[in-house]
Amino acid sequence: MTIDTEVAALRQVPMFKDIDPSRLKLLAFASERIQYKAGQRLFLQGDAADAAYVILEGRADILLKTPGGDVKVAELGRNQIVGEMAIISDTPRSATVVAGEASAALRIDKRVFLDLLVQFPQMAIAIMREIARRLERTNAQLVSAQRG
């Protein structure tokens, strides 16, 4: 398992797809590849956000706390990123994420991520573009929800 496969995985993430290959390689190099057993936690709702994760193998479940216990609200598969919004907005984790099966994830440290954004404006612009797209999408969903 080399850094090149991880770069390929990062490239699948919409947020990173426009980023220069050598930057992406630096991001991968400065990140850690971590293995999880089924049920092992990536992070806990309410914790301080210290990293984002890209799922490399397996899948992750997103759980929300409810009075009746944790409820699974979504499932993430390969090459999907999770936890990135909390490290950008500097807010606590909004959900708990656990490995749904034996999985591997690339852990992108918050400081490394932000350092890279500060250092390479084209990276920051790529991220902004992705966030703007998401906002647009959310707005569109909101509008359709109101209509519906």
Partner: peptide
């Protein structure tokens, strides 16, 4: 030299 090019010296990375 490839991936660190452009990163200024003294940078935490």
């Amino acid at each position: 030299t490839d991936i660190f090019r452009g990163v200024p010296s003294g940078h935490p990375l």
